[in-house]
Amino acid sequence: MTIPRPAPTEADAAIEAWVQRARGGDLTAFNQLVLRYQDPVYGLTLRMLGAPQAAEDATQEAFIRAWQRLETFRGGSFKSWLFTIAANQARDELRRRGRRPTTSLSGNNDDDDLPDIDPPDNDATPLEQVEQAELRGALEAALRTLPDDWREIVVLSDIHGMDYREISDATGLALGTVKSRLSRARGRLREVIRSSRELHEAAERLGDRR
C-alpha cells in the first residue's frame, strides 16, 4: 500500500513546461530546472559524500547528465528522476574512493564537512530552539556515522520525501531492501534521539534540585 500521489499543481505544470522546452534544446528552460532543484540535489550529494567540494562536483555532473539524458525522462516526477542521476553520481564517487561505510558511532568528522545549514526558524521558545538545534546537530552527526548505503536511503526518504517505490527506482534496490535499510537507519538515529532526550531530562532534574 502506498500513499496516493498528490494532484499536479501549478508548480508541477511549470516544471513540465520547462522540461519540454529543455528537451527541445532550450538551455534557459533547463537552467530554470537547475535553479529549482540545485539546493536539494546539492543537499543529497553533500549528505551522501560528506565533503562540500565532492558534492559540488557531483551536483554539476548530475545536471550535465540530466541535460544529456533528458530524452530518457519518461514523465512522472522530474525531481525523482534527477535525484536518481545525482544519487548514482554520488554512489559512483563513493565507489571510486573505495570508501567503506563508517559504522562506528565514535564519528570522525572535520568541521569542514558540516553542511552549511540555517537554524530552524519557527515559533519555538528560545529553550526549545536550543533543544531543536542540539537535536539537529546530533542527528547530522549521527547521519554521518551511518553506513553509506543506509544513509542514502534515509536521506532520500526522510529528508527529500521520496517513497519506497521511488527510492527503489533510484537505487535499483528491491523494495524489501529499501524498507529494511530505512528501518535500520531510523533505528540507529532513534538511539541518538533517546540519548538527547535522556540528557535533557537529566539536565531538568538537576535544575529542579537547585
Binding site: G25, L27, F30, N31, V34, L35, Q38, D39, P40, V41, Y42, G43, L46, R47, P52, E56, T59, Q60, F63, I64, W67, Q68, R69, L70, E71, P115, D116, I117, D118, P120, Q132, R136, L139, E140, V154, D158, I159, H160, G161, L189
Partner: peptide, 21 residues
C-alpha cells in the same frame, strides 16, 4: 530529519553552454 532539507547550494550550477546530448 524532514527539517534538515534546508541545505543551500554554494553556487549556481546553471549550465553556461549546452553539453552534447
Amino acid at each position: 530529519l524532514a527539517t534538515l532539507d534546508d541545505v543551500r547550494a554554494p553556487r549556481s550550477f546553471a549550465l553556461a553552454a549546452p553539453p552534447a546530448r
